[in-house]
Design a protein around this nucleic acid. Structure first.
Lengths: 144, 144
DNA sequence: TTAAACTTGGATAAGATTATACAGATAAAA
DNA sequence: TTTTATCTGTATAATCTTATCCAAGTTTAA
């Protein structure tokens, strides 16, 4: 569904969101420990998220990554997916056809439509705050 | 969503299904032409489909691939996906966690549940005959 | 001002997926 | 029985994804 990079990106973003709500800045080292991801690869992904304005970085000593408190509820999952995987996840043809649309559909076009729409809706309407709160309350987890 | 190999596998299976309904055997060369896929790679995928009992091969001169007429409506998409991609598409955690379940869910677990179920249902209930008939009637396409 | 802690960017490597090529096996048909 | 058309299996290459490493730049705090 998502690439490995995108999985890490979402997990990292939720972890950063949780800490940002608590006023805490987090280092990439801490992030990769807490979401159980390869440190160097995770750092790369964090940079991509910064470039795409999903998270902010604070350089220098005692720096790290954060999301402004008032922005945590504004960041939607779709922004993260789009930043890392582009829009192939919820756009494009299930069978890989270049030009697949209502006029010239692939045989699965109609059958996939609703699933795609549901997926897109979910990604568009789910924000980092609700996910971070589930993490905080202990009703959801980011590793193992 | 699906791997490239799986996309080719589904397209090839639908094309074979259509021809099998018409009593025609098709060569891998013809298949890759009609579904616009790399010939050698497609041949590999066809072999995998034979091994997994999705299609049958007829060896020797004027051989090719087919599906028994009475089986065309019995082959479900999920068999093809499972044969090529395994079950990662409709099983496993959206965020890549090893052990993600109702007891220890990832933050997206609940939100993904319905989408996964819908996808699986669709794959379980869609058979090659209906897809082949759409192709035959000209209401769906397999290339461009 | 200097050292420490951190982010940034580039080079590189390991692994998986996608793709090709070809020799050998198989079976129909001439 | 020989030719021909085809599937099958192995070896190999190209490309993309995943992952690591390190040097350089940035900023805080001592």
């Amino acid at each position: 569904m998502f690439s490995k990079a995108c999985e890490y990106a979402i997990r990292a973003s939720i972890f950063i969101a949780k800490n940002s709500l608590e006023g805490q800045l987090v280092s990439p080292k801490k992030i990769s420990e807490e979401i159980n991801s390869p440190p160097a690869f995770t750092a790369k992904i964090l940079q991509a998220l910064v470039k795409n304005n999903v998270i902010k970085s604070v350089k220098g000593a005692h720096g790290g990554f954060k999301i402004e408190k008032e922005d945590v509820s504004k960041v939607k999952l779709i922004q993260i997916v789009q930043a890392i995987d582009g829009d192939k996840t919820f756009k494009g043809c299930a069978l890989g056809l270049e030009k697949c649309d209502e006029q010239q559909p692939c045989p699965l076009h109609t059958k996939f439509k609703d699933i795609r729409i549901d997926l897109r809706d979910m990604l568009e309407h789910t924000n980092l705050k609700e996910l971070a709160l589930d993490l905080k309350s202990g009703s959801a987890f980011l590793k193992i």
